[in-house]
Design a protein around this nucleic acid. Structure first.
Lengths: 187, 187
DNA sequence: ATACATGTATACCGATTAGTATAATCAAAA
DNA sequence: TTTTGATTATACTAATCGGTATACATGTAT
């Protein structure tokens, strides 16, 4: 059974978010997860690899959840774009919101040649690409520009929410997004 | 002469930006600055205090530069708001752009009771307040909402630029800002 | 019962961390 | 010339870091 592997992953994810990645020691992770270092290093050969796995899982969870929500509740491409920030808000304001990994990770590992930094930028670009595809399917002319702008609003909102939980940031990001989308539709 | 104090400050600022705050040891700072630990601890009683001083100086430099630019080149309040992101772009795309301290610092020190985190959020709110004042003087109705939205774009752009230098992020943030501002003016 | 895999417990390693103690060096002011 | 203050050089501490080694306990399958 690999229930411990998952337990270590989620524990590390929590601690990374609340205490910071560099400030969270391996000893703290195993103590909180209720296991030992030997077991951790059986599943993850190094702390860096554990970080990468945490990032991957978190990003996949978010992307999957978002895509499922959009697929289930909208029909037309334009609808998806319009509802995008509704679900982003739902995700961010959820009580168990655990941050967006790649935003913080890129700050803690600024060097461009660092594997964690590289994965972070990769995930960031992937998310923007996802928005761009929605915009393209909605027949928006400057899908490239709009997707960049929406991803900026997203990053800013996550950052703001991280600085002060329960702020109105996401709410106003949603309003701004609607304005930008509507402007791009009629143009 | 306190030239060394300044040298330590600017060196630390550079290293914090390029290597990360937690990943930059005191020994590295003094070695790069060409001095010794004894001297550093004469001017800054702890590493945390040095971090706080670096943040304060960086924020003041940015705010002063921005305000001077706006005061020198615009007359009417509405003009200031319109040109805000022009100068933000100029600052961010400058070759010696050193990041915006409070964005990275809040990520590296996530705990709300941490002094560095507290100063970061304080500076973030102060910057937003500055924008809000510009909006208010420009007779914008929802100055509160617009200032929040513009600060989100700012944060997102800085984040994006940090992830990949030379991206078009700031350019498109500027365009989005103009749309949001114009929308608020005519409403 | 025996073999095997999984996990625990604990002690250890070398490296690095922030911060301090002490003594030597140097230049300018008296 | 002597005093004084600032800076350097070097060695040290106590704690923490990521990672490893070794021995032991456990349950399951053959």
């Amino acid at each position: 059974m690999s229930g411990l592997r998952q337990k270590i992953l989620s524990t590390a994810s929590d601690l990374f978010q609340t205490q910071g990645i560099n400030s969270t020691g391996v000893d703290t992770i195993v103590a909180t997860a209720g296991t030992t270092k030997m077991t951790l290093y059986k599943y993850f050969s190094s702390k860096e690899l554990l970080i990468l796995e945490v990032l991957k899982e978190g990003h996949q969870d978010f992307q999957t959840w978002l895509n499922d929500k959009l697929s289930a509740n909208t029909k037309h491409p334009a609808e998806k774009l319009q509802k995008l920030f509704d679900y982003i808000e739902e995700w961010i304001t959820a009580p168990d919101f655990n941050g967006i990994g790649f935003i913080k990770a890129s700050a803690e590992f600024p060097r461009e040649d660092n594997p964690v930094h590289k994965l972070s930028t990769e995930q960031s670009q992937q998310f923007r690409e996802y928005i761009k595809q929605l915009a393209t399917e909605a027949n928006i002319k400057d899908a490239d520009g709009l997707s960049l702008q929406l991803s900026l609003l997203f990053k800013g909102a996550v950052q703001a929410e991280h600085m002060q939980r329960g702020s109105d940031a996401v709410k106003y990001a949603k309003i701004a997004a609607k304005i930008l989308i509507d402007g791009s539709l009629t143009r």
